[in-house]
């Protein structure tokens, strides 16, 4: 009953944030002006609502991805960000910014395609490297992730070094991660990954329960380890690749949101999946709203907020965990 109460509280907070946060911003928008044909109405429906929805969905996907990897590899540090998928994606974006000279929205799409492709290549590389050596794959995967992060960061720094000033600033801006969606195009792009991710994770929720306890126990209960691992790994990676291609790398949500959800609701995945999703959504939506309102009229990239608040918060959790044994 306690867990169901927590889930209801999370649903209520999510709905409240989704309803109230479009009203937050430099321009004050009264409720009465929402259905008028006015600039304020356009700001509300075409800029703020898609952005609020985008932030919530992005946070949900990143949190679900982090939760899935943490359960699959039985390690709280295993997230798409720490495994190098986000930096692989960033490398693609940086290559596109430097070497593909196109203009306008088409160039933006090319950046997304490059970012998505390199994220996928990173996933395939990690898979080939680690899945054949299942026994030691968790440590190997984390170490491989660190190596991928270093390699991509090195390549990104090199490209930045040879890039022009404007290219370099665009690269930095992209890598900070932000949800500056205008209109519903990007929101619609993120709905299918969220849907597939949720469906897959609910389908495998008992497998994830058993795998997160012990792989040997999971196999003895009848879990098809090879299929579950591959399906979860690839669908999660695809969802992250699509998301990061749209928003840039946003760190820490995938690590912190599942951690909070586990503290509130435990490790049973039928409860952990919705609670991680909503925790991630709430966390990123709150961070994004702070990012766009804290120093009006300018905005801070949300990746800066999540990293600056997430890092200390994570250290606080770790210290508290150490204190409590």
């Amino acid at each position: 009953m306690k867990r169901k109460t927590f889930l209801i509280v999370l649903v209520l907070i999510s709905l409240a944030f989704l309803f109230l946060f479009p009203f937050a911003g430099t321009v004050s928008i009264p409720f009465s002006s929402l259905f008028e044909d006015s600039v304020k109405s356009k700001i509300f429906w075409d800029i703020r609502v898609p952005r609020v929805l985008g932030a919530f969905i992005t946070g949900s996907i990143l949190a679900l991805a982090g939760m899935a990897f943490q359960s699959l590899f039985r390690n709280d540090l295993a997230t798409p960000y720490t495994l190098g998928i986000s930096s692989g994606s960033a490398l693609g974006a940086v290559i596109a910014i430097k070497f593909i000279t196109l203009s306008g929205t088409f160039h933006y799409s090319v950046i997304q395609v490059f970012s998505f492709t390199t994220a996928l290549l990173t996933v395939i590389f990690l898979h080939l490297l680690t899945f054949k050596k299942r026994a030691e794959s968790t440590y190997l995967l984390l170490l491989a992730g660190i190596a991928v992060n270093f390699t991509c960061t090195g390549a990104i720094l090199f490209i930045q070094y040879i890039a022009s000033g404007s290219e370099s600033s665009r690269m930095v801006r992209w890598m900070m991660g932000s949800i500056d969606f205008i209109g519903y195009g990007s929101v619609f792009k993120l709905i299918p990954p969220l849907f597939f991710l949720l469906a897959l994770l609910f389908y495998f929720h008992r497998d994830l329960d058993l795998i997160s306890i012990d792989t040997e126990i999971a196999v003895s209960r009848g879990v098809n380890l090879a299929i579950t691992e591959k399906a979860v790994f690839f669908v999660v990676s695809l969802a992250v690749a699509v998301t990061v291609a749209n928003t840039g790398p946003i760190g820490f949500v995938g690590m912190i949101a599942p951690h909070i959800a586990r503290k509130l609701i435990g490790r049973e995945h039928r409860y952990l999946i919705p609670s991680s999703m909503m925790s991630g959504g709430i966390l990123l939506l709150f961070s994004d709203t702070v990012a766009r309102t804290i120093i009006p009229p300018s905005e801070i990239p949300v990746g800066v907020i999540t990293a600056m608040s997430g890092g200390p918060f994570f250290i606080f959790i770790l210290m508290r965990k150490g204190k409590n044994g």
């Binding site: 329960d209 997160s212 306890i213 012990d214 040997e216 126990i217 003895s220 435990g266 490790r267 049973e268």
Partner: peptide
């Protein structure tokens, strides 16, 4: 199968 699981630390 009941295997040897001395190290399992599951919070289930």
């Amino acid at each position: 199968v009941v295997a040897q699981h001395p190290d399992i630390d599951a919070d289930f």
